[in-house]
Amino acid sequence: MVLSASLLYGLCGAALIGLGLYGFVVHRRLIRRVLAFNVIGSGIFLLFGAAAYRDPVAGSDPVPQAMIITGIVVALSATALALALIVAHARLARSDALPEDDRSGDPDEGRP
């Protein structure tokens, strides 16, 4: 089996999604979750774009590309709002984690 570029990048996208999902769920610090959210997003976009690049004759499909650009902007908007919320919450709560998540901190942070 010959590994085509689209297949490679598609699988890479799938792996990014999995990685991001894991990070999104396990992190207690909200900023890390937002970062993981962006990794998932770009993984989905990569998967989407790779799928659109499968047809060697017709070339890349511009419709998914347009959708991905839209998606990137939407993800940026969500990121900006989420980060602003985190900052505003941290100002009042003196913590960048939600109260129910804040009992023991993030196990991925500062583990020896």
Partner: peptide
């Protein structure tokens, strides 16, 4: 209320990503 908004945001972000993933696979 900010904590509530953030909590909502987590569910909403996860929800939109999953929806987008499904849509991307369907288009592909």
């Amino acid at each position: 209320t900010l904590a509530a908004a953030l909590r909502y945001m987590m569910f909403a972000l996860m929800g939109s990503l999953l929806y987008l993933l499904g849509a991307a696979l369907l288009y592909a």
